[in-house]
Design a protein around this nucleic acid. Sequence first.
RNA 1: GGCCCGUUCGUCUAUCGGUUAGGACAUCUGGUUUUCAACCAGGCAAGAGGGGUUCGACUCCCCUACGGGCUGCCA
Length: 466
Amino acid sequence: MTSKPIVTRFAPSPTGYLHIGGGRTALFNWLYARGRGGKFLLRIEDTDRERSTPAATEAILRGLTWLGLDWDGDVVSQFDRKDRHAEVAHQMLERGTAYKCFATTEEIAAFRAEAEARGSYALFVSPWRDADPATYPNLPYVIRMRAPRDGETVIQDVVQGRVVIKNDSLDDMICLRSDGTPTYMLAVVVDDHDMQVSHVIRGDDHLNNAARQQMIYAAMDWDIPVWAHIPLIHGPDGKKLSKRHGATGVEEYQAMGYPAAGMRNYLTRLGWAQGDAEIFTTDQALAMFDLDGIGRAPARLDFKKLENTCGHHMAMAQDADLMVELQAYLVAAKLPHLSRDQSDLLTRALYCVKDRAKTFPDLLEKAQFALTARPIVPDEAAAKSLDSVSRGILKSLTLQLQTANWTKADLEQILNAAAAENNIGFGKLAAPLRAALAGRTATPSVFDMMLVLGRQEVLGRLHDAS
RNA sequence: GGCCCGUUCGUCUAUCGGUUAGGACAUCUGGUUUUCAACCAGGCAAGAGGGGUUCGACUCCCCUACGGGCUGCCA
């Protein structure tokens, strides 16, 4: 049998920013398709005109782009396809798999209120389901699915397994609203079918919906896609991830300074596993990712592990890429740009700071020694360490360094010589030197600082300090 | 209320009837280091509870508890 081409999609509704859970869903879809030469499509589910905004769509695209997830073709607007949705609804009408319902929202609400008063929760049963068209009033109507009353609908889900849902728990859902616009339930199915989506990978909050949607596929005689309902992401306390847990938007994570590669790695690994693989590149993820590695239980966000993962990627990154992403971070975090000099200095310092930084703010903090402008203003602790002995050391060092070749080995030799000359421990020597060079942060070794800062800068700082 | 899904170290997870239940993060101890970080070595730490099925269950079945979802002319 010829296997159909792999097509996945991400279909967010534009009612806010890109949620971190949505980002992961998109990532899984992207990984699955891209890892197999398939297509990854993007569709904006904007049929709810009240809540959909262009700004939200923009935010979602930005979020995806930051995560490095690119989609094939144009972004599809579900709203733009409303005529096709209506067309399908009417085809269902013709096939007899749907019917016109003239019940008003008031009638439906009354029906439910009554059921609730009795202490039960009956599904709404439309009196128009089997009505004679000759009795139809000249009023607005909705088109409802003529859902089977008995039997059961079976969802074969790659992640959840075989899920059986009794048809009597499913009502005759509305497919086309009285204003002629489609509901979500109809629109997804039509769009997924038309876009030839082969694998529907989405949150498991849609698992029950899959049964209803499958009825539409059946009504239209369409092929059912492969279902993969993945668990949602929870907060550290196990509750559904919400604002009170902190950041929920993908862009917020960018603004906090997490590198995208680390974020991608962490998100991939959250709720998915392939043996003991923990840290991997995107190419490796692409090669490894498969649906059967997805867990069935909701996963909690763990910021410590996120940081650790990001730390690995920070160290793995190319310096040039890091500098580019850093600029984007500064913009996202609304921080001032680096000056040309700072940029150059930081580029030179990367080799000795990137493998100890986990995030961009972290990187900047650890690179303070290079970024801090002269004159140095030591903090109190550093100033206290600059006793008269230290001042003397700095003076003699200044002289020695003026004639030195500034390779790491030479610097080491000079410092050792200076230590011996002053009859003092290496540590005691390094303290004032570091204070002079760094101002207040003292992350890299003295050697690293000297190599990064260069002769002029170091000598200047030594003079300032002594 | 009804229906559906889930439950292995604190966290992410491996295991797909037979393991001293493995790895990673976190944490603790020691080492290395001019400092911090990093790094190295080691330690602590788990099958929600109860019934079955089986020679044998974390793995299969049932019940309970807990968590989540659906039950809209929202998506």
